[in-house]
Structure formats: C-alpha cells, structure tokens
Amino acid sequence: MFSQPTTLEEALDVRARCGPDLLPIAGGTDIVVAMNRGQLRPAGFLDLTHVRGLDAVRHENGRYECGGAATHATLSRLPVEALAEAALSVGGPAIRNRGTIGGNLVTASPAGDGCVALLALDADVELAHASRGRRVVPLREYFLGYRKTALLADELITRVRFPKDWITAWYKIGKRGSVNISVVCCAIGRSPTGLFHIALGSVAATPIRAPHAEEIVNRDGLTDGAIAEAADAVRRDISPIDDHRASAKYRAAMSVTLVARLLRRIRDRVKEPAR
C-alpha cells in the first residue's frame, strides 16, 4: 500500500494510524538500497516527497529551520560551511537531489555525515505526532545507540533547527575523491560566545560529540598546546572498531588528526591571536 499525502497534517495522521506498517520514505537512498539488497521488504510506504513545505529551509532569528525532507542538495547551498560541505560529500548529485536530512537522522548511521555536521551545530530536531503534538529534542540526546534514536514509530521528523552564523569546519576521510562513506569524519562548530562543539562520525556506535576535547578548548582557547591536548583527549570520547573499512587504531589516530586540523582551521578563521 502506498500513501502519498500532500500536507503535513495528512502525513502525521497516516503515520499515527499506520505506524510501522507504512514505512516513511523520502529520498529512498537508504531504504531502497536495503530493498534492492533483499534485506528489507516493506509492506507499504508513506511517501513524504509530496508533502508541501517539508523540504523547505527557512531562516528566522539567526537560526535556520529546515524541513524534515530538505535534501542534501538544498543543504549544500546554505552558507553554513560544515553542513554544506557534509551535504556536498554525500554521494553524487543524483543522491543529493533525493537524500534528505530527515532520512539521514532516522537511519542514524555512525557514518551519517549530516548527523555529524548537525551535532557540531548543536542542532535541535522536532519530532511530531498527529495528536500528541511536537517535541523538540536536542540532537546530542537524540542518538540512543547503534541505529537507535529518540524517534517513535508513530512520529515524523518535521524540522531541524540550527544556528546560522557559527564558524564551522568539516573534514571527511574517505578512500577516494568522491562518493565516500566516511572512514572518519569530523565537524567543529564555534558559537559566537566562543564555545566549541566537536562532533565525529564512524568512531562509535552513533555519531558523537567529544566532550573531553571540547572541555579543553572551551577552557584554554585555541593555543597550540590546547589544540594538541584537545586532539589527544578525543581518544577518550571515541570507541572505534575494526571493520572492513578501517582499523580502530587508524580511526583513533585520525580522530586526533582531524580535531587538531579543524581547530587550527577555525583559529585561522577567527583570527583570534593565539593566547
């Protein structure tokens, strides 16, 4: 069965009534891959691609508010460097035209690049239910475990909010020039108040923040010493594994390298004299 609502109300309504029986589908870039591999055979679909406005990005009070079905292509055009670059690093143009931020957050792969960039922006995600209404969850509390999130089976992701004018930086290590699943990726956002938000992908069961590393730069600023110390401290924030994509040792070393590299990059941007 196939439901193709055109309004959000209708979509939430179907979602509330049919719950897990109708799998929400947006770009299908995760779901249909699994279907084509024979790993998933959904009984029916709730198509979100025709819901008016769900793919839009709005801008108010210094924050962006993007719809749950905003595509990577749309995000890649925003002047928020880490998010735009993360979105640009997803697949090729055909994937970016279809794949959505909502799908990325629901799949919640440890390698989800959108998730990592949004963590570094300390984003909020809005989860909505037809009758219970909307709840806003800070993204750092949203990832519960390996591909487990705070989203309930009768809710949809309707919005993601994040700040507009933070200084951010992004780096993803892959094995080729484009269309990479990250081996390790890192995003860092610096709020106007000077607080750092360091996020990493592919180094734990979920996309993560790195509180130990953050604490050091939040305390000491971006001196050479603090950067080195923070980068080293990231080892305490991560729990990488060995798999066919990379070894845990390499992932750990790259977490250190990338945190240092991006902190230096942010320092250059801030033009804050090293203390």
Partner: peptide, 20 residues
C-alpha cells in the same frame, strides 16, 4: 573474511570516480 566477502557491493568495493 573466513571465506566470506565482506564487501560484495559497490558501496564498499569502490571504483575510481571522476575526481580520482
């Protein structure tokens, strides 16, 4: 890995792209 191909798809058996 133990007689099993760990990457039997183009997601993980990767080929050079335009940029490579």
């Amino acid at each position: 890995r133990d007689g099993r191909i760990a990457n039997p798809n183009f997601t993980d058996y990767i080929l050079p792209t335009f940029r490579d």
